[in-house]
Design a protein around this nucleic acid. Structure first.
Lengths: 410, 410
DNA sequence: GCACTTTTGAAAAAATTTTATAAACTTTGG
DNA sequence: CCAAAGTTTATAAAATTTTTTCAAAAGTGC
């Protein structure tokens, strides 16, 4: 007698344990290759706690499916030289879309994190459905222009500012991007035909720094993204921390100056009103207009020409007014950061965004403020650094976010 | 020909993969049984992603070693009734030591989290080596009095306030407990002969709530412990969050009232100065002395008799002065908590400590402040609750911390 | 009593690890 | 400079472990 046959596809397949373990290994190999770029079978076996023959089978399968390829043999060590494996740069492309309040960039990135196509336009993030329509046509045009097979695109990551509920795929700061109760992600997925992931720009930056930048390998890190606003990205236990709804890390509306400006959020002296690059420029412009002593006084007739880069350049040229202004901003920022440090006790803080170029002019006052406002125990294991990724942290982080989510869904 | 024999114990044994996987299963079974109390083989197999025969072998081994025992069969469900397994309450005891600034408690706890022996003394935490000497003799006396075989004790967890570097085993707030550069834990371990773990009292409370209290199963939770000070415990991804050095969660010195009292830390208007139970009592006493309208005025001749319980009782009796005082405290606390909520975006906040007994009198103003000081997105998925563990959260959390660390070291 | 569930344990099947050996390369010693 | 010794990787075969399958046992409900 034969056991009752499976009742077709309507019964949950109850994935067998062996399939589960196989997928776990596939995931592990892909993740490790993505992070380490190139690897030997022995290394993979060790990190995944399995035997070499077992890993060999998994990798062979991945080579056949086009995910992995060999890249010659290692050199230098004793003994027989191992074959090196890496992800295959041909195919499995991910689109990184970076929409900020001043422009929108499309990047086609291969599994080796190389940008194979890039296209930027001035169209900036707006809180309406037309913007999403623009985004869609922009993506579709760009795909055509890049002359890439659409089937080779495995996902899209959209990095935008705002409060983002990553799981539900909606942006609460820009709620009109999609219809109410319809996630922005499903809206895009339906049109594009591949999975779409939403990530907050500062969180993407933090992830990029943690995976490929200065914070590499650190368990607990903070990254502050000083641009038109100031955004905090949090890495805890080596993962970007989202919180229950994806909103974790709202530092911008912490009060640092009880006698400061009124913020659009209704409170007074929020960090955002003081330490963003835009508010720094505004204060510089006002001071120049009022006739302060500075090299920047050449713009006194038209202070609106002064940009953040002018301020940074002036500081590097020794202009004490510019240095003082940067110092003030850094100090207030450090004061606000102290709150986050007291709560998160990170190992490293990485400064990103336009102000990162001011390096020591902004890092030193941050460190001074931390020294003053944090207990000494917190400072001992803490370093503050400017990014060394030259603005690549955000798209690198977005790519990592998409890839890691795709791997996790195997 | 025979392969060269192992070179004795001086060569690293290079734990084989199969041993690693076996230990992983042992760990998994013990952790799951500890958390769920009682389990069937099928449940264990499912949660650990293995087959039933495989788990059967692991459990049999644990039964033989005395860790696990059967507790009859399940009832109610369809089909053949499965044998139930649980941890064996005899043996594998853990000592929970709870040293606060007013007393010290010794508890002997079995793997089913039952207190088999308990002893408390008034001796309170002091920052000197004599206190450690007292602790040692107190523990040793208590073990004798409990009439338990010392070999059946597998570890000790010490819950104390202060900045605790859990990995290094030192308390930075009370640095004189052990000699400089000598961890307090190794000092105790040498004398006692079993592993000792140090944990901050508020972190222990948070862990207890997350494992066995209201926050059960929540991924991201905060617990505030309002006692003589105010302590924050953080649960992230279901684990107690320590930060890089173990100091994460220092909320007490966040400024909530720029015109408030001077704190011992040097800043003004720290949360600690406003919302701790002791400062509440102090303010009540002052107001009563100055002749406020309240049932508590009966103590006007000797305000030092007023305790926190009197204030809470008065509130329950409808005394509007007491209600207002609790309201103020809760509101300020909620204001301070808002900072943590903006950064951690938790699902639940649990109020512990003596003030938890004031339930709605303290919960409502906390919620009001959160509504005012947090963006709406943060509030929607957030609940605020008083503990339902009646003060057991701290020792339960300490026990869980020890057990989970011991399991992890298998 | 019969149909249906679920657990349990033994045997068969499959997968994985370990062991052994060959291959590829570096270093050392004559 | 070449051969021998020592390393390390790759792969095939053996040993072991683990999973799957199957049938029996122990229940519920109609």
């Amino acid at each position: 007698m034969i056991a009752s046959p499976p009742l077709g596809d309507d019964v949950a397949p109850k994935r067998s344990v062996v399939v589960y373990k196989k997928n776990q290994k596939l995931r592990g190999v892909l993740s490790h290759l993505y992070q380490e770029e190139t690897c030997t079978l022995a290394q993979l076996a060790e990190t995944l706690y399995t035997s070499v023959p077992s890993i060999t089978g998994v990798v062979e399968e991945l080579v056949e499916s086009g995910w992995v390829r060999t890249t010659g043999t290692a050199t230098g060590n004793n003994g027989r030289r191992p074959v090196l494996f890496s992800l295959n740069p041909n195919g499995h492309y991910v689109i990184v879309l970076d929409s900020s309040t001043h422009d929108t960039c499309f990047m086609l990135v291969n599994p080796l994190r190389q940008v194979v196509f890039r296209r930027c336009v001035d169209t900036h993030l707006e809180n309406n459905a037309q913007f999403v329509a623009f985004l869609l046509s922009f993506v579709q045009e760009s795909i055509e222009e890049a002359a890439v097979n659409k089937d080779d695109i495995i996902g899209l990551g959209l990095a935008i500012p705002g409060l983002i509920d990553a799981r539900r795929g909606i942006n609460l700061t820009y709620p009109n991007l999609s219809a109410p109760n319809e996630p922005l992600t499903t809206c895009l997925e339906e049109q594009l035909g591949f999975p779409v992931y939403l990530i907050n720009d500062s969180k993407a930056t933090a992830l990029g720094e943690n995976r490929f930048g200065g914070g590499q390998g650190k368990k607990h890190a903070l990254s502050i993204n000083i641009d038109w606003g100031v955004g905090l990205g949090i890495i805890l236990n080596g993962e970007v921390f989202q919180g229950a709804s994806g909103f974790a890390g709202e530092l911008g509306h912490i009060q640092v100056d009880p006698e400061g400006e009124l913020c659009y959020c209704g409170k007074v002296g929020c960090l955002d009103t003081i330490t963003s690059a835009s508010s720094l420029v505004r204060r510089v412009q006002r001071a120049v207009q009022e006739g302060c002593m500075s090299k920047l006084a050449v713009y006194q007739n038209d202070v609106s020409q002064i940009t953040i880069n002018h301020v940074i350049e002036a500081a590097y040229a020794g202009d004490s007014f510019a240095i003082d202004m940067l110092h003030d901003t850094g100090y207030q920022l450090g004061k606000g950061l102290s709150v986050a440090i007291n709560l998160f006790n990170p190992e490293i803080i990485i400064v990103d965004g336009v102000l990162a170029q001011a390096s020591t002019f902004i890092i030193n006052p941050i460190e001074q403020a931390i020294t003053k406002y944090c207990l000494s125990g917190f400072r001992n294991d803490l370093t503050v650094e400017a990014t060394q990724l030259n603005g690549a942290a955000k798209w690198l982080g977005t790519h990592a976010y998409v890839m890691e989510n795709l791997f996790a869904s195997i």
